[in-house]
Design a protein around this nucleic acid. Structure first.
Lengths: 198, 198
DNA sequence: ACGATCGTCTACCAATTGGTAGAGAGATGG
DNA sequence: CCATCTCTCTACCAATTGGTAGACGATCGT
């Protein structure tokens, strides 16, 4: 098997650790140890921790954008079906890797430098979604509401459920294949009900 | 005005900092500086950082439990109205103090010692909610679904929207009084639609 | 065969972390 | 008026943080 480069492994480990425990709580030493290398090797590939954070954010954003774009291109016309497609697309990587969405959430706590870059990267996606929701509401194919806030609420639901294993544990949910399937389906029903017209 | 005790001020400042930036990212020194006191004074009132975290969690949980309980006692019988009441009750302290729900979320990242205590404190509330949702679903007054997952999804939506100013900023939302009102109303419509029968 | 480049390492460093020891100011009670 | 108690302080400490300097071996083009 083609062993991945040190740089790639650092990025992957960092994404997992940053996303699950928070950027500030994870030291370069810990990342290095997990990768199986010295801290200075990490600093060889990334000039500073800020630099590393920046690139990890870029990787995570790119990964999500790709998945979402692909799902949307293949999705049917009905808005509820399209939203469904996005949920299905995001759900798989999100639960397989809670760190992914966790990292996106982490942005709000970071200093504005790298966060701003990620924001500008994602902003077009958001704007497009808001415009789309508004148009479909006007067409009567989605429940009426402020498209901006509805977009934020849908995002909050999806991201929230994917990044809070603790909440799911509290209701006795288990991360088995069957559990994942039923969670995904429940999430789809939930969003579908929340967004359906009338 | 009765000036609050040093201990109380430490608790309050810690709640805000822990909730918005994460426990690991906030040092005792920073807490002390914010309160206007030396770090050793913090360590006089709380034997260790873990201890402080523990008590801050207890305060946050108690605050929420009180608010929710009061809202439920005063709420009407219809389940949608009751959920509405909880949303209204939690929404005010949650947006006035994003740290509150942020801290609850923070629990998932913490080591099990204090987190376990908080969990056991909140668990009865969760169980009660799940049983209630199940009963109302059976009575046909709420949309059918797995009550456990529906509870988690409702929680994720509420907590997610209240703890992610970044997502709201992305859609151009502003934290003005009018903005808060429309966000609260949109959240209520969203949850109401998601949970209504049929 | 050989210098240059690449990737990782050891050896440090100053600043910050959570935490200990104990001094000293103020009030309180016998 | 003195002993005790409460509270905050200064002075340290070992461990960890992000980061610099530079040595060392492997690989490469010439």
């Amino acid at each position: 098997m083609a062993e991945r480069s040190t740089r790639e492994r650092i990025l992957e480990v960092s994404l997992d650790l940053f996303g699950t425990r928070g950027v500030d709580a994870v030291s370069l030493d810990e990342i290095a140890r997990t990768v199986g290398v010295r801290k200075q090797t990490v600093l060889y590939w990334f000039a500073s921790k800020d630099d590393l954070v920046d690139e990890v954010l870029a990787v995570a954003a790119a990964e999500l954008v790709i998945v979402i774009d692909a799902a949307l291109r293949a999705a049917p016309d009905d808005p509820l079906d399209r939203i469904d497609a996005v949920v299905r697309a995001v759900f798989r990587p999100a639960v397989r890797r809670p760190a992914l969405l966790g990292l996106i959430r982490e942005v709000s706590r970071l200093d504005s430098e790298p966060a701003e870059r990620l924001r500008s990267r994602i902003q077009p996606l958001v704007d497009r979604a808001v415009v789309y929701l508004g148009a479909e509401m006007d067409a009567g194919r989605l429940r009426r509401g402020d498209p901006r806030l509805v977009a934020a609420l849908g995002y909050a639901t999806l991201t929230g459920i994917a990044t809070e294993p603790e909440a799911l544990r509290a209701v006795g949910w288990q991360a088995t294949p069957a559990g994942l399937r039923s969670l995904r389906d429940e999430l789809r029903s939930f969003l579908r009900a929340a967004l359906s017209p009338n």
